[in-house]
Write a protein that binds this DNA or RNA. Sequence first.
DNA 1: CCTATAATTCGAAACATGTCGAATAATAAA
DNA 2: TTTATTATTCGACATGTTTCGAATTATAGG
Lengths: 108, 108
Amino acid sequence: MSNNKIDSVLLCEAFKALSNPHRLALFNRLMNCCAPGTKCSPVAAVRYCVGELGEGLDIAPSTLSHHLKELNRAGLVEMERKGKNVECWVEPARLEKLTTFFKPVQND
Amino acid sequence: MSNNKIDSVLLCEAFKALSNPHRLALFNRLMNCCAPGTKCSPVAAVRYCVGELGEGLDIAPSTLSHHLKELNRAGLVEMERKGKNVECWVEPARLEKLTTFFKPVQND
DNA sequence: CCTATAATTCGAAACATGTCGAATAATAAA
DNA sequence: TTTATTATTCGACATGTTTCGAATTATAGG
């Protein structure tokens, strides 16, 4: 099926990225981008800029930048400069990998 | 709905537990307990003992014990002594929490 | 009780991570 | 060009993590 060895390395890196409270909060903010009660596909994700994502988290800009870089390195978050800002959004493909990991094997 | 603050702490601890290659391998072994192509509910999980789980991982018994303890602390794995051995199995409730985290919010 | 097996605890060493402030880079606007 | 805004890089420090071997505990069987 799929290359299990490579997959587990990618998975491990994703989990490591999400293992920090600040990074989990940042990722969660990006993932649940829509108003509560509103349907929102992760593909059509809203693009926060770096500064907005850190609001209320009480961490230095340098620390925020570092965490976003980690999420990006892990393949969970994409980033693109847009003027003075840098926009961020969730990578749907990697998200899919994570969801399938926890599902029990089913063949029917 | 659910207490978001507590949930994120639990999630974070679970991700931290899975962020180590050895621990991810151990958890994966416990989760995919059934033969490939066989249906296997995580509820009716096979119970490996500690020593069996570490086979082929090339780590010291003390290290193995430490990692299992971490998985247990994170609420991912349950453990119970059975004679000389200690049996381990996946906690289905926590597994459910992880699967739902990645699902996009849907109200319809 | 003594021995063997399975697992855990403890202490130490090497290594990785989270955090900050200061300095730097990239862009926009006056 | 100069200034303001947004974000990143760098170096440093404190704290955590991973790993091992040695000692210890728990249990079963002679």
